[in-house]
Computed example of a mutant assay.
Amino acid sequence: MAEAGPRREGAPEGEVRAAVPVRAADEAALYRVARRRARDSEQRKMRVDVRYSVGEHTEILAGARRLNLAGAHFVGALVMAHLHGDLALPDQRTSHDDLIDELAALRTEVARIGTNVNQIAHRLNAGGHPHPVDSAVLAAAQEVLAMARAAATAIDTAADVAAASKRVA
Rank of each mutant, 00 (worst) to 15 (best):
K45M: 15
K45P: 08
M46N: 10
M46D: 15
M46E: 14
D49Y: 03
D49N: 10
V50R: 01
V50G: 06
V50A: 08
Y52V: 14
Y52F: 15
Y52Q: 08
Y52K: 03
Y52R: 07
S53L: 10
S53R: 10
V54C: 05
V54T: 09
V54F: 06
V54P: 06
E56H: 04
E56K: 02
H57N: 11
T58D: 09
E59A: 15
E59C: 09
E59F: 02
E59W: 02
E59Q: 13
E59K: 09
I60Y: 02
L61I: 13
A62L: 10
A62K: 10
A62D: 09
A62Q: 09
G63I: 03
G63D: 10
A64G: 12
A64S: 14
A64W: 07
R65S: 15
R65L: 14
R65N: 12
R65M: 12
R66Q: 13
L67S: 11
L67C: 14
L69H: 07
L69Q: 12
A70P: 11
G71N: 07
G71D: 13
G71H: 04
G71S: 15
A72V: 09
A72K: 04
A72N: 05
A72R: 09
H73S: 13
H73A: 15
H73Y: 06
H73P: 05
H73V: 13
H73C: 07
F74K: 05
F74H: 12
F74A: 11
V75F: 00
V75G: 01
V75D: 01
V75N: 01
V75A: 07
V75Y: 00
V75W: 00
G76I: 00
G76Y: 00
G76T: 00
A77Y: 00
L78W: 03
M80S: 07
M80R: 04
M80C: 05
A81N: 10
A81Q: 06
A81R: 01
A81H: 04
H82W: 08
L83Y: 02
L83T: 10
G85C: 05
G85N: 04
G85D: 06
G85M: 06
D86S: 06
L87Q: 02
L87G: 03
A88C: 01
A88N: 03
A88E: 04
L89P: 00
L89Y: 01
L89G: 03
L89W: 00
P90I: 03
P90D: 07
